Structures are given as C-alpha cells and as structure tokens.
Simulated assay, not measured.
Amino acid sequence: MTAYAIAVLGTTPGAPHPDVLTYIERVQSTFTPYGGRFLVHGTKGEWLEGEPLGGIVMIEFPDLEAAHAWYASPAYQQILPLRTDHLPGSLVLLEGVPESYDAARTAAAMRAAG
C-alpha cells in the first residue's frame, strides 16, 4: 500500500545555510532508488485552520517498507545532518489508505466498538 514521508520544516532568518542547499541538491537521489517521488516540496501551504507550521514536503513511496528503507539508507543518513543541524522540523512516515477506503465505515466500526 502506498506510503508517504511528510516533513514540516521550520524556517530560519535570511538565506538558507549552504548545508541545507546541499541537502536539497542531493535528497532526491537518495529516495529515487526506493521508488520515491516528490508530491510537495517546500510549499508553505494555504493554512485554513491552526497556525502555519512551516514548509511542507511530501514524498510518495510504493509502500512503507520502501519508505523505511530509504530513511535508513546510508545515502540518506549521510546527508540528513546537513538539514537537521540547520533547519528545525519533523518527519513522519505513514501508510496511505486503499482506494476503497470509506471514512463512514470507519466511524461505524468505532461506534460499534464502543
């Protein structure tokens, strides 16, 4: 089932640190071998509720195993400090839902459970 890596990255005053730019230049080559592709990159978004959290990055993977393999890969681990040392943020890996997913059925099951 399709999986996603979603990052919310803070901002820093002024121009990005050169290491962050190097990270951006190199990151795509780390997830392409795992079937990853950008869906969103650095978009601040149009926040309709809550406070703006930062820039959004969303990468799609064929499945959660591929997403985990990418994150643990030597290529990604090598460049990760280029971002984390200079740019605050959070990253989550999560599995998507099947095309047949129906939120009303989920609610019904939750009601029945109690």
Rank of each mutant, 00 (worst) to 15 (best):
residue 26 R to T: 05
residue 54 G to Q: 09
residue 71 Y to H: 05
residue 64 L to Y: 11
residue 83 R to T: 03
residue 30 T to V: 00
residue 74 P to A: 15
residue 59 I to F: 05
residue 41 H to S: 11
residue 81 P to M: 03
residue 28 Q to P: 05
residue 31 F to P: 01
residue 64 L to R: 14
residue 70 W to F: 10
residue 81 P to R: 05
residue 69 A to Y: 07
residue 28 Q to D: 10
residue 71 Y to G: 00
residue 37 R to T: 08
residue 21 L to V: 14
residue 60 E to M: 09
residue 47 W to F: 10
residue 49 E to P: 07
residue 83 R to Q: 02
residue 50 G to C: 09
residue 56 I to Q: 07
residue 53 L to N: 08
residue 25 E to Q: 12
residue 22 T to H: 09
residue 55 G to L: 11
residue 61 F to L: 05
residue 72 A to Q: 10
residue 23 Y to G: 02
residue 81 P to W: 03
residue 47 W to K: 15
residue 38 F to L: 13
residue 40 V to S: 06
residue 51 E to H: 15
residue 60 E to G: 10
residue 54 G to D: 13
residue 19 D to M: 03
residue 42 G to D: 13
residue 71 Y to C: 00
residue 47 W to I: 14
residue 27 V to A: 01
residue 59 I to P: 07
residue 83 R to D: 01
residue 25 E to W: 00
residue 67 A to M: 06
residue 45 G to V: 11
residue 42 G to Q: 08
residue 36 G to K: 04
residue 62 P to V: 13
residue 75 A to F: 07
residue 41 H to G: 11
residue 24 I to V: 14
residue 43 T to C: 09
residue 45 G to K: 11
residue 42 G to F: 12
residue 62 P to N: 09
residue 73 S to N: 05
residue 33 P to Y: 07
residue 33 P to R: 10
residue 77 Q to E: 06
residue 20 V to A: 08
residue 67 A to I: 04
residue 52 P to K: 07
residue 60 E to Y: 09
